[in-house]
């Protein structure tokens, strides 16, 4: 595990220096801060939900793009610089290497999520306070903010990005170049979001039912990671859901890392 941690720490250090991380983070932060201007439209109590949805949308999309870009970047950097040779030659196993890389990118994604949350939470809190002052009964129907719920929703977005990063890492072990891996990563993002569609199409009797229904079972369902409503409800059900989602993400992470290890053994380095 020490080697995994060493590789993860090095990956995190290196990723933090990439310009794409800083650019994406700044864009997301600016976007979240920009939601303050929504008050110009006078949405009333629904403004809070809009701000939360926009914030979590940026969190989810930004983390997904970051997962695709950074995972391919860190993998191909190691291959092209031949530092992968140095790691493997000193006894780092392929699974340790892939786990370390994934852990490093997962830490980076966590940092991104935390920074975005650190910006989003004050915005939400400020708007809720302002709206409550204007309309004291605005949030009496369970539509007020819930801090634990906000954390759970952000955690679910982070988990989703980590599963995507694991899948992209598997793709990278298979791909000849980073452009191909990134392209396929974007495709995976869409496919994983539509896993439930496959299942739905299958259950509705479309053609070929067994294939589409089967695909719905094989692939991770990213729709399941959308816990934005938890930000406003935040009941115990969402905690249970978050625990199950963690298991779900760990399982898929293990599947993709396992496939990546099999693939990396076949790859001539």
């Amino acid at each position: 595990m020490r080697r995994v941690w060493l590789i993860a720490a090095a990956t995190l250090r290196e990723s933090l220096q990439h310009r794409s991380f800083a650019l994406l983070l700044l864009a997301a932060l600016a976007f979240v801060a920009g939601t303050l201007f929504l008050r110009q439209f006078n949405f009333g109590s629904s403004e809070l939900k809009f701000v939360a949805d926009l914030g979590f949308g940026m969190l989810s999309l930004g983390a997904a793009l970051l997962a695709i870009a950074m995972m391919t970047q860190v993998f191909f950097d190691e291959c092209e610089r031949r530092t992968l040779h140095l790691l493997l030659a000193r006894g780092v196993s392929r699974s340790e290497f892939l786990l370390g890389k994934l852990a490093g990118v997962a830490l980076l994604l966590g940092l991104y999520a935390l920074m975005l949350l650190a910006c989003l939470w004050p915005v939400l809190w400020a708007r809720e306070t302002a709206l409550l002052a204007l309309m004291p009964d605005a949030f009496d129907r369970g539509s007020g903010l819930n801090f634990a719920g906000v954390m759970i929703a952000a955690y679910a977005s982070w988990l989703k990005a980590c599963v995507l990063a694991a899948a992209v890492l598997w793709l990278a072990t298979l791909a000849e170049n980073r452009v191909f891996a990134m392209g396929c990563g974007l495709l995976l993002l869409i496919i994983f979001h539509s896993a439930a569609v496959w299942a739905a199409y299958g259950s509705n009797g479309g053609w070929p039912v067994w294939l589409l229904h089967g695909l719905g079972y094989l692939l991770p369902d990213f729709g399941a990671f959308d816990l934005t409503p938890a930000a406003f409800a935040g009941d115990g059900g969402f905690v249970v859901r978050a625990v199950r989602l963690t298991l779900y993400a760990v399982l898929y992470g293990a599947i993709f890392i396992g496939l990546g290890v099999l693939q990396l053994r076949r790859r001539e380095i």
């Binding site: 439930a196 569609v197 739905a200 719905g216 094989l218 991770p220 779900y248």
Partner: peptide
């Protein structure tokens, strides 16, 4: 893995569908 994840860990994926 997929069947284990989707049918055991998170069975409401298909229920949702």
């Amino acid at each position: 893995g997929g069947i284990l994840a989707n049918a055991v860990v998170l069975p409401d994926v298909t229920a949702r569908a």
